[in-house]
């Protein structure tokens, strides 16, 4: 279970954990847009320091945060390799048979890798500091204006929260079934891809059967309590904006603004380089 850290809540009582999930969600959305506007290494550095600062503030060990990058390592390597080998530029550095590497290719590969890693890190902070339930509530709240045009926001949020709630249950169930089949001598670790895939059938069939059984039971239980998706209901945890939320938003937005200012006005990289000239 260790390798599915992405999306796993890391309990702690830090200022970041206590922020309004809606604010956190919006900040992350802005962040993702911002990352695509990063133009030079200096700004990658700034964003990286920003993430480390937020991580320290949220009391999440950096080890835990950086572990989330493992999930995208393969993706990073593949995209970087493609860019490295297929980018044509002016300055040829290395050429052997059909492989030729240009300076531009190297730069693009590095920047893409950095971008992907940055894209992974900060949203991971969101899921590490926010429970899935809080996130769902935040999404419901942020989408609620759409109710005016008859979007079933509540139903969507409910589906999301049930799906989220089911993930740990299904994982637990999967583990149990894997154990049960292992006890019957199943071998999931050796053999080729085909054999390994085939070995999963005794796990997947009971898992699906169980998922349908659970869905039936849940629907029945909700029906028995007269659940209706149109009923007006109150929240157990009311989300309220506080001064801390405002401060956090302002701080983050000013960091992001730095990126845009740099790209369109300052050109930080060149300023630093010119200092050394």
């Amino acid at each position: 279970m260790d390798n599915i850290v992405f999306g796993q809540y890391y309990p702690s009582n830090s200022p970041v954990h206590r922020l309004d999930p809606r604010v956190k969600l919006l900040i992350v959305l802005f962040y993702i847009v911002t990352v695509f506007f990063v133009a030079d290494y200096a700004m990658y550095g700034v964003l990286f320091l920003f993430i480390v600062a937020v991580a320290l503030l949220s009391k999440i060990p950096l080890r835990v945060l950086f572990r989330t990058v493992r999930a995208v390592v393969v993706l990073v390597l593949i995209t970087s390799a493609i860019n490295l080998f297929f980018t044509k530029g002016e300055e040829l550095l290395f050429s052997w048979k059909f492989i030729s590497i240009y300076k531009e290719g190297i730069e693009r590969a590095i920047k893409l890798a950095l971008r992907l890693i940055l894209l992974m890190l900060f949203p991971s902070l969101l899921t590490l500091t926010t429970t899935p339930m809080e996130l769902t509530d935040a999404i419901e709240s942020l989408l609620s204006p759409l109710k005016v045009i008859k979007v079933p926001v509540h139903a969507i949020a409910l589906i999301m929260s049930i799906a989220l709630r089911m993930i740990p249950i299904l994982m637990e169930e999967t583990n149990k079934i894997i154990l049960a089949q292992k006890a019957r001598g199943a071998d999931f670790d050796t053999g080729g891809v085909l054999k390994k895939a085939k070995a999963m059938i005794p796990v997947l069939v009971p898992l699906f059967v169980g998922a349908f059984r659970r869905a039936d039971e849940l629907a029945l239980a909700m029906d028995a309590r007269c659940y209706s998706s149109v009923a007006k209901r109150t929240k157990y945890k009311v989300m309220k904006l506080t001064v801390a939320d405002l401060v956090a938003a302002l701080f983050c937005l000013s960091v992001f603004a730095l990126v845009f200012l740099n790209k369109y006005l300052w050109h930080f990289d060149e300023m630093i380089l010119s200092l050394f000239r």
Binding site: K176, I177, A180, A183, R184, G185, A186, P202, V205, V209
Partner: peptide
Amino acid sequence: MQYPEYQLFDETVEKDVSYGPKN
């Protein structure tokens, strides 16, 4: 295991029971 009936998976009873010995 607990609730062992949840580990059944194969098309027929015979195939399911033979899973262990086959392994």
